[in-house]
Amino acid sequence: MRNQRKHSGSRAEPEVRRASGLGVFYLLVFAWAWGVGLLYAVASGPMVRVFGEVTLGNPLIFLTVWSPTILAFAVTAVHGGRDGLRDLVGRIFRWRFPLRWYLAATFGVAGLTLGARFLQAHLSGAAPPPVGDFARWPEFAMGGLAMMVLDPGPIGEDPGWRGFALPRMLERFNPTTAAVLLGVIWAVWHLPAFLFSGMPQSSLPLGWFCLSMVSVTVLMAWVTINTGGAVIPAILMHWSFNRFSDLGQEGAMYAALAYTAGALLVIIGTCGSLGFRAARAGASAPALGRVRR
């Protein structure tokens, strides 16, 4: 049942005000992304003439990918004021947490992807993928930095989904339910991208893509919770997912099942809490919020 305890002191008001903006955030995020998609669908000619084709190089599309972060700040400013903005910025730039969570965030999805490719090769009788080609060392570091700048997804989305929405979801649902629901919402938000050939999602199998998004969201929630609500681990995991995942027609099933297996292991290993109870004991209330059991 929902935790109904009243919190005394200065923390109570920011938590109550923070929770009130979640519905507005989701409404605006979908209105922006789906609205742009609808305009391109029904008025393709004028939209292309004014803004260009639907690609990540289109400034309007780039801003649309950034809409979760942009709207997280806007809604926080209205519903949370200065305290809410300080809380959000603090979680986005929180970097002091154990090294193992940096490694889990950066290499966890990459390891699952590599395992999926080896399994696919074994079952199909093909040659296993060269690890050197998979990671492309030593280009990994420089390529990763470039992708952080050129790929709008991790920085443009995760402060919104993981920094703004996840703590509010944890105030309403238990951690596993919150993560799965957020993953479904995240996947549905991407659906307009499947309609346009200039977007990466247009060539991906929809079902396996959605399963991957939900599973990776559980993993992102796990690292975010265990770092006291920090957003950096989610950004790193999102980057790793975009860089290494093979969601094409041949590899999508194996990748999606690997991510699902990883998510299930985390859920089972933490008894569904995703580490929330242990992390909550050492985190401030605004970082993770109250949790519904």
Rank of each mutant, 00 (worst) to 15 (best):
V223L: 09
F209G: 01
L182S: 06
R172S: 09
T217A: 14
S240I: 10
A234N: 07
G198Y: 08
A187G: 15
L166P: 04
W208E: 10
V214H: 02
L247E: 08
L206V: 15
L166H: 06
I185Y: 11
R168E: 08
C210I: 13
N242Q: 12
P167K: 04
I232W: 14
C210Y: 02
W222N: 00
G183K: 04
V231W: 02
L247G: 02
R172H: 09
M213P: 00
W239D: 01
G163A: 12
P167H: 03
N226G: 04
G163V: 05
L236S: 04
R243A: 14
T224H: 11
L166N: 05
G228P: 03
S203Q: 11
M169F: 15
T217C: 15
L170D: 10
A179R: 03
M199S: 12
N174A: 13
S197L: 11
W239K: 03
S203F: 03
W222R: 03
L219C: 07
F173A: 12
A165P: 06
L181D: 10
L170Y: 11
V223C: 12
V180G: 11
L166T: 04
L182W: 03
S240F: 11
S203G: 05
T217L: 05
R243H: 15
V180Y: 09
S203A: 14
S197C: 01
W239E: 12
P192V: 07
A165I: 06
V180R: 11
R168A: 07
M199I: 04
V216A: 09
F241Y: 14
I225H: 02
P192H: 07
E171F: 00
V218W: 01
A230F: 10
V231A: 09
A179H: 05
A230K: 08
V223D: 02
R172M: 11
L182K: 07
V214T: 08
L166E: 05
F164T: 11
T227E: 02
L247S: 05
R243V: 03
P175D: 13
A230D: 09
W222M: 03
L247M: 12
L206W: 06
H238I: 02
A187N: 11
P192G: 08
F194C: 08
M213D: 00
S215H: 01
T176G: 07
N242G: 15
T217R: 01
F173R: 12
P175A: 13
S212V: 05
C210T: 13
S245Y: 01
A178F: 10
S245C: 10
M199P: 01
L206Q: 09
G229M: 07
S240E: 08
A178N: 09
N242H: 14
T217M: 15
W239M: 13
P200N: 04
L191S: 10
S215E: 01
G183N: 06
A193Y: 12
V218M: 08
E171Y: 01
F244N: 06
A178L: 07
S203H: 04
P233E: 04
S245M: 13
L181Q: 12
S245D: 12
F194D: 06
L206T: 14
V214P: 02
V231R: 02
M213C: 14
T177K: 14
P205Q: 10
N242A: 13
M169I: 06
A221K: 02
V223M: 07
Q201I: 02
V231K: 03
F196H: 12
S203R: 13
L204T: 04
N226M: 04
L206N: 00
L191F: 15
I232A: 14
A234G: 14
P233T: 10
